[in-house]
Amino acid sequence: MSKGITIKPPLTDSIVRSLKAGDEVKITGVIYTARDMAHKRLCEALDVGKELPFDLAGAVIYFCGPSPAKPGCVIGSAGPTTSSRMDPFSPKLIANGLKAMLGKGCRSDHVRNALKKYGAVHLSTLGGAGALLSKHIVSAEVLAYQDLGTEAVRKLEVVDFPAIVAYDSYGNTVYKEV
């Protein structure tokens, strides 16, 4: 198990293929938040050939709806939400260039197959530790879907954001399959 590999989005195929389930990674660079409703809209946009709010090629999507920023702060509490709710949407985004997702918990076989087929990974970070994780976010701006409030798509700049490779691009997982 490798410790603390720094990965910088946009991610290349060779970086993604070098990651193994259980590896600890630190993300430095730009990632994009999207939860349920934003995923629905991103997929609808792809269906009709509309331009997405950000370039999916090599992108990292963070399943996160932060709490509001206090005055003087860039963001509020900002931990991951349950990944499996995005299962119906992720394969389409992966097929269109998405290289990593960041959330908590398990993914469906359909998502795992897409990770293998297109070369992508699912990363897990600390569920319920949004205060600690907010310390790794240095800037945040709403990019799209502002009407969704906390569920809007945000561009985040992160430094040494901690995560574990939960599902790699070879079909392996860190989760104990009970």
């Binding site: 709490s67 931990g79 319920g128 530790a129 949004g130 205060a131 600690l132």
Partner: peptide, 18 residues
């Protein structure tokens, strides 16, 4: 998680965004 609780309390940041 214990460190998260410390940061949340001392800096008045919600423990969890939810």
């Amino acid at each position: 998680l214990i460190e998260n609780a410390r940061i949340a309390k001392t800096e008045s940041i919600p423990l969890c965004q939810d």
